[in-house]
Design a binder for these strands. Structure first.
Lengths: 343, 343
DNA sequence: ATGAAAGCGCTAACAC
DNA sequence: GTGTTAGCGCTTTCAT
């Protein structure tokens, strides 16, 4: 069959014959083997050019065990956060000559396991896995032969590298920012009941720490659960919360999307932002710069996360999946003040 | 070397030995060959299970010429439109058992050509190509052995399938919608000077047709160029346009992102939407449902585009890249009226 | 209904 | 510096 979808493919053999050398020499040229006569190399290069030869990546992958492809497991590209993460990862990977196979798993446990253990992993050099459905109890599931780097907050102390953000410190800083504006009745917006180790759990901890440090009593009525973290979920949760009549003058939202959904609902209800309620989000997705008002947020250092994650993965690919002890990396964050928390 | 990154891999041989059958029988089981004794099949299945065998996709790809991977060439995932397109394509592909390798080319000509002609294409069964940098003059570049389906507007009458949207009719309907509100001084927002065949050119044509049909003279001062179609470009273009002092009471934006950027700038300038200026966009990206005001738009039938494009590509993969004459498919669109063009 | 054997295109030992 | 050869793990004739 030969090259995908085509009946006849040009192989190294054809190039070798045309250049009057052996197939090994062609391989040497392609792989930049240094000890080649310049004239030989040029003859091979000419032949490659003339025939339009392209190396067959499946064959190379089979023989060498390297495909030049890494897989990125994420819940959902419609979530702006993950779309931006994917973009950053692809840029970082591209500069290492790696292609990225994105696997959307929609937060489904079975799909995440399939992506980790299914046959597709025989075809990629490594996996970047943004954990959502698995948690600390599933650490065993991460013991796979393929080089693996974890993103996200659900699993710490796994058998491999983990690159993530300062969740607690970031939300603590966000909360302190609203406190510094004189706001005292702050919503923790985006909690997941009972969760401790996921993003929602950590961020709630950051919120509580900031209140504690400021000597402000924690009021559980001001903890608002938001199941998923899409805009629509934030809107729905805020609608429901407003119906309860609990007073508040600030919103610490656990991500930007739900902050924007909530902001929209508050504005419908005649609440002025930031005059009546100050709002801060988390993620610094692009659209926070263009909403009305623009949204203050925590920039979690996504570019840094992507770069480091790809570097860690490349190191594991090159030196062996288990050759490096597990590493933990936390990217730097910063508070971005915009109109939604202006003075 | 064996399975990626691991020194020892379990192969069909191991399974065959354990099950006491030949390697061919194992292959038959895996590929659902029907004429197998149930008992044999079960014995093989048990052995697969026991050993944790996974077929090596590189080997299968080399031998069969099928990798089960298609590539999606798009400019940029940070653009919500393409993120949503990628999501839709991946869902459609997943239901056919295909994985998707996303290649971000950033609208760069060299990168698009590389994605079409580079070695990576030997590793995928087919390519979905959202054209941005190439145009009608590059039709020859599309003559590749890999099955190919085009998306977007830059190239018509190529040698292969083309799945796209009703650009002219969609913007015409958008324009008519604002006209039906009594608005007469409408901006065509997002033009590309001199472009005819791209999205911007087609959409401008739709705008002009609607004006012509309504007997309203075309005023070139109300055609606003916007280079890229990101939010920030829309904001910048609107800022510049407002400085000119040309009056207007409606904006027909050529995509949602620039509409949102422009809306934000108009609101800063004290313009009320829709009271002073009605706005309609194009694409129906998710966030148009949550902005203030929500954005009226044209829904271009993206789900349909993704489904049909994947189906066309699958047909070409199965029957041969050149076995089917070129097809053209236009998805259905609809006008979505929201607050930005409320009465 | 199952087995034997060839070979997809490449890389990597090992010669020379 | 360059050529020969084996073999990665699978699918696919061809036998039986």
């Amino acid at each position: 069959m030969g090259r995908t979808g085509q009946r006849v493919a040009i192989t190294m053999h054809d190039v070798a014959k045309l250049a009057g050398v052996s197939i090994k020499t062609v391989s040497n040229v392609i792989n930049d083997y240094p000890y080649l006569r310049a004239e030989t190399r040029q003859r091979v290069l000419d032949a490659i050019d003339k025939l339009g030869y392209q190396p067959n990546l499946s064959a190379r992958g089979l023989r060498s065990g390297r495909t030049g492809v890494i897989s990125l497991i994420i819940p959902d590209l419609r979530n702006a956060y993950f779309a931006e993460l994917a973009d950053s990862v692809m840029r970082a990977a591209a500069s290492d000559g790696l292609a990225v196979l994105i696997q959307q798993v929609g937060g489904l446990r079975a799909a995440e396991l399939e992506a980790l253990h299914g046959p597709r992993m025989t075809n990629v050099d490594g996996i970047l896995y943004s954990v959502l459905a698995l948690d600390d109890n599933d650490v065993d599931q991460l013991d796979i032969p393929t080089p693996l780097v974890l993103l996200g907050e659900r699993i710490f102390n796994g058998p491999t590298d983990h690159v993530t953000m300062h969740n607690i410190e970031g939300v603590k800083a966000a909360t302190e920012h609203l406190l510094s504006l004189g706001r005292r009745r702050l919503l923790a917006f985006g909690a997941h009941p009972g969760e401790v180790i996921g993003s929602a759990g950590l961020r709630l901890t950051g919120y509580r720490q900031a209140l504690d440090d400021a000597g402000i009593p924690f009021d559980p009525r001001r903890v608002v659960n938001v199941g998923n973290w899409h805009r629509s979920d934030g809107a729905a949760a805020m609608r429901e919360f407003l119906a309860k009549g609990v007073e508040f003058d600030g919103v610490v939202a656990f991500n930007d999307s739900i902050a924007l959904g909530a902001m929209r609902v508050m504005q419908e209800a005649g609440i002025r932002i930031p005059a009546d309620v100050a709002v801060i989000g988390f993620d610094d997705i692009d659209e926070t710069r263009y909403t009305l008002p623009t949204l203050s947020t925590i920039s979690p250092g996504m570019e840094e996360i992507a770069t480091v994650a790809v570097r860690f993965l490349r190191e594991r690919i090159e030196r062996g999946a288990r050759a490096i002890p597990p590493r933990e990396y936390l990217a730097n964050f910063s508070v971005i003040q915009r109109e939604s928390s202006a003075l």
